[in-house]
Amino acid sequence: MIIASNVSKKFGKLKALDDVSVTCIKGECIALIGPNGCGKTTLIKSILGMVVCDSGFITFNGNNIRHDWKYRARIGYMPQIGRYPENMTIGQVLDMMKDIRGCKNEVVDEELISQFGLKDILKKRMSTLSGGTRQKVSAALAFLFNPEVLILDEPTAGLDPVSSEMLKAKIITEKNKGKLVLITSHILSELDDLISQVIYMQDGKLCFHKSITSLQEETGEAKLSKAIAQVMMKR
């Protein structure tokens, strides 16, 4: 569904992505992990077209994304740090996104909005929100339009445990509907029951892309965190 071929990107002298090739298939839930600054977010942003890669290309359902912008309608994106126009209210942001996507009449998935209790604070301005609440808004927006692909950048960072669980449950239901989910996270333990594949990146390079079962087999560890730790030790 999403294929990145030999994607490279430099920010000044820093190689954020170095010849990265990935294939992501429908129905998978892929964890994108690696140390800080290894290029996870850059890869995600490249897929979304927010960062234009220097060489290589990315296709979405076989179409090069550089010449296509409509594909983004099929992606729900939850950024690491949700940044929104500061003097809009939550309600206005939600309405605006619905308006921009042009799906006023379509069924929108407002499950998370109600679960997170955002309905009670629709009139609050974005500038007054706490980090956690912003994350809730971001998450709600990512799921709002029933996208085929979900890209979640550190989804649970800053969320309280209850909301975190709600979000996880939501991810699982969506995955079970056969959607492609791409997650980055530092907290490996919480990925355990979610993911089916792991992509490990370091210094802008793709180290490996394996299914969780083969990883467990190779390392003999059931827990993802331990399995990864072992892989890293080996290197």
Partner: peptide
């Protein structure tokens, strides 16, 4: 409005 732009760029626009 860089954040606004960022938000918009991730949308199908």
């Amino acid at each position: 409005s860089s954040e606004f732009l960022e938000l918009l760029v991730s949308q199908p626009l």
